[in-house]
């Protein structure tokens, strides 16, 4: 079944997901949504990895995906912790209000 789906489709889906994620990071103001968008970009990359792994008949890509998922879990934990702290300090989830590094 999967054989009939050419690898370019997966790549296209990955690209679309990545673009949606990137667009979300750039456009959205809610910090949690930005974090979610980052996750989405990561998962689009995972999808690409898996697709190539299958296409090239190599396990390397899949090992990478497990690594990325583990790292992503850690990253989400830290990211959310940061957001919670930010929220406590600034009482804001709007990314535009967090601008104390402005020159």
């Amino acid at each position: 079944m999967i054989d009939q789906v050419p690898v370019s489709f997966y790549l296209l889906l990955g690209a679309i997901l990545f673009s949606i994620g990137a667009g979300g990071v750039l456009i959205r103001r809610n910090t949690i949504i930005i974090l979610m968008c980052v996750e989405m970009m990561m998962n689009s990359v995972n999808l690409t990895f898996v697709a190539f792994s299958r296409y090239l008949d190599s396990a390397t890509g899949q090992i990478f995906v497990f690594m990325i998922m583990a790292v992503a879990a850690v990253e989400v934990a830290i990211g959310l912790a940061l957001l919670v702290e930010l929220n406590r300090h600034k009482r804001a989830v709007n990314i535009d209000e967090i601008n104390s590094l402005k020159g």
Binding site: A22, V25, L26, I27, I34, I95, D96, I98, N99, S100, L101, K102, G103
Partner: peptide, 20 residues
């Protein structure tokens, strides 16, 4: 430094865009 500091808008998306 003053002039260059204008690059630091403080908006995260500007930095992200610059990265992209």
């Amino acid at each position: 430094g003053q002039q260059l500091s204008q690059l630091q808008s403080g908006y995260l998306r500007h930095y992200a865009l610059a990265t992209f």
